Simulated scan of single mutants.
Amino acid sequence: MAQAVHGSVLDDLGVRIAGGELEAGQVLTLAALEEHYAVSRTVVREAVRVLESMGLLVSRRRVGITVQPTRDWNALDTTLIRWRLRGNSRSQQLVALTELRSAIEPVAAKLAASRASQRERTRLLELAAQLQALGASERGDSPEYLQADIEFHDLILDASGNALLAAVKEPIAQVLAGRANLGLTPARPLHDALHNHVLTAQAIADGDPLAAEKHSKGYLDTILGEVLIIHDAAIGEAPEFESETPDTP
């Protein structure tokens, strides 16, 4: 009997669905999952309950547990994002989240230029300087760079003064961390991306909404170009699912 390979039934089953091993429309049963993972019925029920809350599964009497199509998933759930970044759809997930950032962050930067507090403006300049220094020393792939980058983008979203824009902080943090964990963040960041981070911070500090929007769009255009290259390179690769469990319930 297979054991969960990612620490829990929930994690393993979630990765298998998010990665496409278990396809939409496939019907599972509690008994088969219980046998597959060699765990109690209670553990299986709890995992299924959580996956149902995320839109990945639906349970119906006399039908079973059905895997749902991606359109029904809670796409901004941070756990689901992590699972998708670990599976075959990682490049598509990077593109989709970067496209979301491109739609949101320039607007947030524009609003932040008008609404940010003086403390927020000062902190953005400090973070931009830190990113620039780490990038110049070819530490763009370091934990310190990732931490500063996440704080930089979180702060722009918070400083927008719009709670709905700020609500996407966690998904954005996940895509930044996901790129780093996959080894896709360059040690020396692309000049246009890093330079536009600095210019965005300066525009917000100066209270220039149009410049803040322009330079935020500038770094996101560069980043989107990077992830599209990653996506194009991934097309045609052999499927690579991380679970070591050959049998499928």
Rank of each mutant, 00 (worst) to 15 (best):
E46I: 03
E144D: 15
A133I: 11
L94F: 09
V43N: 09
Q93D: 09
S8L: 04
A4E: 11
A201P: 08
R84Q: 13
A148Y: 12
A116L: 03
V168R: 03
T222E: 10
K110Y: 06
S243V: 00
D208Y: 02
L85S: 11
L56F: 06
L124T: 00
A4K: 00
Q174P: 08
T122L: 03
L51Y: 01
R121L: 00
S89N: 12
Y145P: 11
Q130Y: 04
D206N: 15
A4T: 06
G236N: 13
H191F: 12
G87R: 03
G7Y: 04
A212W: 06
L94R: 02
P246F: 00
A205E: 06
I230C: 06
M1D: 13
R82T: 15
S89V: 14
E151F: 10
E120L: 01
R16W: 10
L111S: 08
L125C: 09
A159T: 00
T185D: 07
L157F: 08
L125F: 03
S216E: 07
A96H: 03
Q132C: 14
D206E: 15
D141L: 07
A32G: 15
Q147A: 15
A31L: 11
G236T: 15
R60N: 07
A133F: 02
R82Y: 09
A233N: 13
N88L: 10
N74D: 14
L220N: 01
H195L: 14
A167M: 06
A177K: 11
S160D: 04
S53W: 01
G236P: 01
L176M: 12
T79F: 11
R90T: 10
E237A: 13
L199K: 14
A180F: 07
A108I: 00
L13T: 02
V168C: 09
A211P: 00
F241C: 07
D221W: 08
S117V: 04
E34L: 10
P186H: 00
S216F: 00
N181C: 07
I235G: 03
L127I: 07
